[in-house]
């Protein structure tokens, strides 16, 4: 047990250091960064903003990690967010109770995920192409649901999911942390995680050794669809409306980036959900930091790019080899997970 904790700590070390450096940089340009207050029944401060605004990417990153571990990729999550947000908004404006609204939205996400999984696992289409279908078509579907307008709603229950608080934390934060722990427990306390890694390393060998590859692949994409659905409901609830054109736009790329910053290889195999979540927080910390710093908006993307390139370079295998050369004793029990 102690050994696993140690291994986990070592695995997460680069991400934790990166996050700490990013936070320190923000605190340097914006001194009030770490200040907290308690307002409207919840904690209020920039750190909370990062956790809260990072919720959609964090949720997407959970599903994306599992999909990437199978050597796949899910480009459709942004569009699925838009569809599920639209479904939730449409259901709320029809006056359905919250339970029905949520069930419909999550079911939509699951259906989208099963569709992707079917294309990849059964029809054997390359994941990048298979999920591209829904990425392109998804926004059209969402627009059909909202009829091209921003569909606003006043359902208090649904709004609570985006703007409410539970135990002093904003609801979206609670949701992604709980969901992240639940999925981590599911894949790590059972053999599921290892089987997923096996598929990612060698799908054919896994199938031959008796793993139900198609079922697990469909399950991975379904999880990703479910994550996108939750993220979509949160995004819609946050602005009290479903914006089919802009909800989740380009977030699939942020989610993939979060996974990569978290150190999971795009070639599949070993993965860490916790590291991906840290990656999502690093990205959001950079975004929020740029907003707080007061730089002109023309610099936003440049600053983000520079920081992320630095993080990726530091994590690259060559740099690791060089650094381990200088710190050989510390790498004795260098578990990767």
């Amino acid at each position: 047990m102690i050994r696993t904790v140690q291994q986990l700590a070592l695995r997460l070390l680069p991400q934790v250091i990166a996050l700490a450096i990013v936070l320190a940089m923000i605190a340097a340009v914006f001194p009030g960064f770490f200040s907290f207050s308690f307002q409207n029944g919840r904690l209020y401060g920039s750190i909370i903003d990062i956790l809260n605004r990072g919720a959609p990417v964090a949720l997407l990153a959970i599903g994306m990690t599992v999909v990437i571990a199978t050597k796949g990729i899910d480009l459709s999550v942004g569009a699925v967010m838009a569809i599920c947000g639209a479904v939730a908004a449409a259901s709320a404006t029809h006056g359905n109770p919250l339970v029905v609204t949520l069930a419909l939205a999550l079911a939509t996400g699951i259906v989208c995920g099963i569709w992707n999984g079917f294309l990849v696992a059964v029809l054997d289409i390359q994941p990048i192409i298979a999920t591209l279908v829904l990425m392109v078509a998804g926004r059209g579907i969402a627009q059909l649901v909202t009829e091209g307008a921003i569909l606003t709603f006043n359902d208090e229950g649904l709004i609570f999911i985006g703007g409410g608080a539970f135990g002093g934390l904003p609801m979206p934060v609670v949701i992604w942390i709980v969901f992240g722990i639940a999925i981590t427990a599911l894949v790590r306390r059972t053999a599921l995680g290892m089987l997923i890694e096996a598929i990612g390393i060698n799908r054919r060998a896994s199938t031959l050794s008796g793993i139900q590859t198609p079922v697990l692949l469909i399950a991975a994409y379904t999880l990703s669809g479910l994550c996108a659905a939750i993220a979509g409901v949160i995004a819609a609830a946050d602005i009290r409306g479903a914006d089919a054109n802009n909800a989740g736009l380009w977030l699939e790329l942020d989610a993939i980036l979060a996974v990569v910053v978290g150190g999971t290889s795009l070639l599949g195999g070993r993965f860490s959900i916790a590291a991906s979540l840290l990656g999502a927080m690093i990205i959001q910390a950079i975004n929020t930091g740029i907003l707080l710093s007061g730089f002109p908006p023309e610099f936003n993307l440049i600053i983000k790019a520079v920081i992320i390139v630095v993080i990726l370079v530091v994590q690259s295998p060559k740099i690791r080899t060089i650094s381990s050369f200088f710190a050989r004793p510390a790498r004795q029990n260098g578990g990767e997970r």
Partner: peptide
């Protein structure tokens, strides 16, 4: 005193305004 892009969307408008409020004494 502050000018940032909100990409013409509600979500970004809200997020950027949150940071403006934090940065300018609540």
């Amino acid at each position: 005193i502050r000018s940032q892009t909100g990409d013409f969307t509600r979500t970004k408008g809200k997020e950027v305004m949150e940071s403006f409020l934090k940065a300018e004494d609540g």
